[in-house]
Design a protein around this nucleic acid. Structure first.
Lengths: 351, 351
DNA sequence: CCCGAAAGTCGAAACGTTTCGAATTGAGGT
DNA sequence: ACCTCAATTCGAAACGTTTCGACTTTCGGG
């Protein structure tokens, strides 16, 4: 046995006494190949234990890696803890997989990790960002430098494909629904604002700083509805635990709210748990709204008033957008419809 | 402007009036480069808008893609719904990221999708399997053909790195704990057995067929403890919803169990919810055990008797294993310790 | 019996790096 | 002034494919 160099197409060609290009054509399925030639090549390949064309060489030569980068902000643990995000990703990854595209998980490039971050150096044909901050998003700059086509799930950017939702309007609808029930002291529990923080009461200007798009939109809805939230709690992640903490903060606040608008169902569920712990009845003592329309079996008999989103549809659409981008199309921007759904977690304000 | 061909190292070299190799050395950080030479190259690169060495070419030439494949069985939605899995992945992906390695998500190759599946064709340096079926695991064959080094999180295979846990012994400990409390009719709710199924009562031979390793180990524990489960319910995923369904099936069964051994905390939580719905008190009327040691805020005041696992440790260890594999080391096989933790979800059997 | 087209097959040139070993330069020692 | 050595820089050969135009055959038709 010689030193175990892995066999290449050239080896197969030599053994089959055929030209290299013929072997290539056999594997790539392009050009016309006669059946017996195909058989001959395959026999030689099997004899050598040839494992198929090297993906690395294919990538270099063809200029395509068949990989789509997926930029995850925060820790994966937080980002994927939300079943809604998961539904989007499931559809997205499934569809891309069927298109023969792999998904490369990329930690978001932070300002300090500028050097050697994967987004800048990994081999891929396109990228998908799960959210962007409205200012100061390092990922955008890197992608621009690399001239990579990309899409954004929550948010938009010039030159990027995007799937957007009218969450601002839908949230305003929720607030009006509460106002219609006579609520005057409405608190809100937001998704993380921008850079990582803790779950805590937020005192500053409502829309100040670099916010994630959904956070901004759903906060801006208060202005649209002409309501000023009596307490604003920022969560550190869309998780039940964070909701519980946020609930305690909100209910413990001087201006005890009679309603809480939560930017996700998971947060809303947590707030509901906090209410229970404090002996507050939902919706008798306090109304709670969520966002996403998750199925939370442990919350029953509570059925959140919320804004259902179709996560799978979102994922499918992004996959389509990526496909279009790879085909060289102009980056599509699509808006999904959204309507609020009234559950039993909201009712008339207590007197 | 000429046709927008992207600048290459050669262009940079030409503009800087320097040899191609010098530019390469500048970027790769290998070889000695004088400060002014580096400046000259960088200036030229900036002038051209050179985005850095092409990852595709680097991969071909160096034989390394800096990508680790991660094989996810089932739908992502199910696989990642379990916070425990998520903790493992978070640690794994974080560590690999710090080592400059990207993680490529790969749908598990099913027998029918044999052709053109990503595991067979994607460019990567190593792979990690989240679980294997003890027989009939197509992924193993593909990896062997490609001669890719790989590690397994739940399970083992010849030639593969692996992180294992004594879950069989720990589960037997749980069962003995229940027996010590006088339980005689013990049901069990398993993780999915093998190929995708529904949540349903399982009637067949306990250990028959191709099982996922954890499912097999934790079922085998019944034999070790000398107990025959009075009902066996197979879940379709480690999710609360599946646990609820399984609970209803178990409690609705003729031989109403006084204890339920669940193969994950999420399932256990669901079973507890089902018990509540049926007016059964935990642990007065029925004892429930879980696995993983998750923090389930919505289950309080119930604190599951379970087997805590350190997900982060698991992830870190796999990352280390991958590193070792890439360095050419023999595939390490590591067992993590495990002890049961008694909570308030188990008590004496009702008379 | 010759011509043109169709069907297969082949050669050779990329794709954009990394990685030697070799060549150049300048300084220091004698 | 000559030689050695260290510090840099350079040339050229891979890495393993895809792709395009060119080159054989083979075959039907005139």
């Amino acid at each position: 046995m010689s030193a175990q160099r892995r066999p290449t197409m050239a080896d197969v060609a030599a053994l089959a006494r055929v030209s290299l290009s013929t072997v290539s054509l056999t594997y790539s399925g392009a050009g016309p190949i006669s059946p017996d030639m195909r058989a001959r090549v395959e026999k030689a390949a099997t004899a050598l234990g040839y494992a198929g064309p090297s993906p690395r060489a294919q990538a270099l030569r063809s200029g395509r890696s068949r990989v789509v980068g997926l930029v995850i902000h925060e820790q994966l643990q937080y980002a994927l803890r939300d079943p809604f995000t998961l539904r989007v990703l499931d559809a997205l990854i499934g569809d891309l997989g069927e298109m023969g595209l792999g998904v490369l998980l990329l930690p978001s490039p932070s300002a300090d990790t500028t050097e050697s971050n994967l987004l800048a150096t990994a081999s891929m044909d396109a990228a998908v960002l799960m959210r962007v901050r409205d200012h100061d998003e390092p990922a955008l700059e890197i992608l621009a430098r690399r001239e990579l086509p990309f899409g954004i799930v929550e948010g938009t950017a010039p030159g990027a494909a995007a799937i957007t939702i009218p969450d601002r309007r839908a949230t305003a609808d929720l607030i009006r629904h509460l106002v219609g029930f006579g609520h005057e002291r409405i608190a809100t529990v937001t998704l993380p604002r921008g850079t990582r923080g803790a779950t805590a009461i937020y005192e500053g200007e409502l829309l100040a700083g670099a916010l994630w798009t959904p956070t901004r939109n759903r906060l801006a809805a208060f202005e649209d509805a002409g309501v000023e939230p009596c307490v604003v709690v920022e969560s550190h992640a869309s998780m039940v635990e964070a909701g519980v903490a946020a609930g305690h903060l909100a209910f413990g606040h001087a201006s005890r709210p009679t309603a809480v608008v939560c930017q996700s169902d998971l947060l809303a569920g947590g707030v509901a748990l906090a209410a229970r712990e404090l002996g507050l009845d939902v919706p008798e003592d306090v109304s709670i709204t969520g966002f996403d329309g998750l199925d939370l079996p442990w919350l029953q008999p509570l059925d959140l008033t919320t804004v259902p989103q179709d996560g799978a549809a979102k994922g499918h659409l992004i996959a389509q957008s990526v496909k279009a981008l790879l085909a060289g199309a102009e980056p599509p921007v699509i808006e999904l419809p959204l309507e609020i759904r009234i559950g039993n977690s909201t009712a008339h304000a207590p007197r």
